[in-house]
């Protein structure tokens, strides 16, 4: 088996070794449901789609994913097991990818468990299942970018709380950069091309674009590059800080 797969399996199993994983999944599902039905007015809208469900994902992820990612490397450094991991015959890239994919898969499992909503809309009406699939894809990609950021920041500290807070802040900035309200304010002081550039860096812009059901290569590329960049930074940070 490939070393990435071996690290991945160990890491994913370690999520489920404690009740925290189940608590996380339950909270995720409860919040997703609450946002959708209560804040999103799922029934009141009278439309068979999952737009209210997906529109809250960025904000749901903002707090839940840093909690998933914070332990990835901080814990490893705190317990010293990083010394064991990095003296095994695997490359840094394999270790980083294996751990990242495990955290991403964990979020993916939580996301997949929202399938009853999809069944519900299909039962109630005749939704555009293509758009729903695109929504899931966009959400999963965005989650990946969140996890990559969290993984990188978790490598910079051995304190999980610090990792959590820093990750929330960075993710918040990347979300806010796409909020129309913020962009309007920025438009007053900055030239339009800069505002556009900032908007194009935001998760929100690309997530919403995918959620409309049109899968543009540029949006996929954006998340791919985002994940790639943060994971590369992750490897660099580990190299610099691993022995401290």
């Amino acid at each position: 088996m490939n070393p990435i797969g071996i690290v991945f399996r160990r890491e994913l199993a370690s999520y489920f070794a404690t009740p925290v994983a189940y608590v996380f999944i339950v909270i995720f599902l409860l919040l997703a449901g609450w946002f959708t039905f209560y804040l999103g007015g799922f029934f009141e809208r009278g439309q068979a789609d999952l737009v209210p469900f997906f529109s809250f994902h960025p904000w749901l992820y903002l707090f839940l994913i840093p909690a998933v990612a914070m332990r990835l490397w901080a814990e490893e450094r705190k317990s010293g097991s990083i010394e064991l991991l990095l003296t095994l015959p695997i490359t840094m890239l394999q270790a980083v990818l294996g751990k990242f994919l495990a955290a991403w898969a964990f979020v993916g499992i939580a996301l997949a468990l929202t399938f009853p909503l999809w069944i519900t809309v299909n039962y109630l009406g005749d939704p555009d299942n293509g758009a729903i699939l695109a929504g899931y894809l966009g959400s999963l990609l965005m989650a990946g970018a969140f996890v990559a950021i969290g993984s990188c920041i978790s490598a910079a500290t051995r304190n999980q709380v610090v990792a959590f807070i820093l990750t929330v802040v960075v993710c918040l900035v990347l979300l806010l950069a796409g909020l129309p309200m913020v962009l309007n304010v920025l438009g007053v002081v900055l030239p339009q091309f800069l505002v556009d550039a900032i908007a194009s860096l935001s998760f929100l812009t690309h997530f919403q674009a995918i959620g409309k059901g049109v899968i543009d290569l540029r949006d996929l590329l954006y998340f791919g590059l985002m994940i790639g960049f943060w994971l590369y930074a992750n490897a660099v940070v580990i190299d610099l800080k691993k022995a401290d």
Binding site: A13, S14, A17, S79, G80, S81, I82, E83, L84, T87
Partner: peptide, 13 residues
């Protein structure tokens, strides 16, 4: 084969 100082490992396993 390497035994690091303090014999770290994965506690939850």
């Amino acid at each position: 084969g390497y035994l690091p100082e303090g014999a770290p490992s994965y506690g939850e396993m």
